[in-house]
Amino acid sequence: MDWLRDIIDYVPANIDQLRELTGNHLVQAILPIIFGVLLAVPLAQLARQNRSLAGIMLTGSSILYTIPSLAMFVFLPLILGTSILSMVNVVVALTIYAIALLMRSTVDALNSIDDGVRQAAVAMGYRPLRRFLTVDLPLSVPVLIAGVRVISVTNIATVSVGALIGVPSLGRLFTDGLTRNYPEQIAVGIIFTLLLALVLDLLLVLLERLLTPWTRPTKASEADDVALDARTVAA
C-alpha cells in the first residue's frame, strides 16, 4: 500500500501549490456558472417572445455546444485577443457551454408555468417585469438549478483540460504527473476534482432548498425525491 501512503503524504508536502491550483480551478468553474445564469435567463425570455429569434439562438447555441473545449480554448485567444495562457479563455468557453445548456431548459421551464398563476399575478396588478422577477423566475428555479448542477459537475471536470495549453488549474497535477511519471500526483488531482464537484453539488442542493421554501419536503413527499433525482439526471 505504498502508493496510498504516497498519495496521503503528497497533500501536506504540496499544500501551498494545491491551495493555489484549487483556487484557480474554482474561479474558472464557478464564474461561468454565474455568467451563464445571468445571460441565459434574459436570453430565454427573449426567445420565448420571438419565435424566429428562438430558432436562431437555439440552433446557434447547440452548434457552439458541439465544439470541443480544447478547440475552443485554442480559438478564443485568437478572437478575444487574450493570451493563450489566460484564464479568461476558459471562463468564456465554459460560459458559452453554460448558456447553450441553460437557455434550452430555461425556455422549457418558463413555458411550463401554469398560465393561471400568471393571470393571477396580472389580475393582482403585477407589471410584466415584476411578474417575471417575482413569479415566473422563482417558479423555474428547480429546473434552473437542475441545469446548473449538470453544468457545475461538467465544468469542474472540463477546467482541467485547460492545463494542456498551460492555464493553471488542478489539471496541472495531471500534466505534471504524466511528464514526471508520477501516478500518485495524478491520483491526488482526481481526488481533489471529485471532492470539489461533490462540495459544489451539495451547495447547489442547499441553495435550491433556500430559494424554493414551498417545495421543502414533507415526510410524505420524500419518496418523490428519489424520482426527482432520477429526472434530474435525465434532464
Binding site: 459537475v153 471536470a157 500534466t175 504524466l178 482526481i190 428519489v226 439526471v233
Partner: peptide
C-alpha cells in the same frame, strides 16, 4: 437499483477524464 445507478452516474460524471487517461497511461 435505480438509486444505485443514479448516484453511480453522478460520480462517474464528476471524474476528470483527462486525469483518468493519464493515470491509466502510467499505470
Amino acid at each position: 437499483g435505480r438509486v444505485l445507478i443514479v448516484s453511480g452516474i453522478g460520480i462517474l460524471r464528476a471524474l476528470p477524464t483527462l486525469g483518468m487517461v493519464f493515470l491509466f497511461a502510467l499505470l
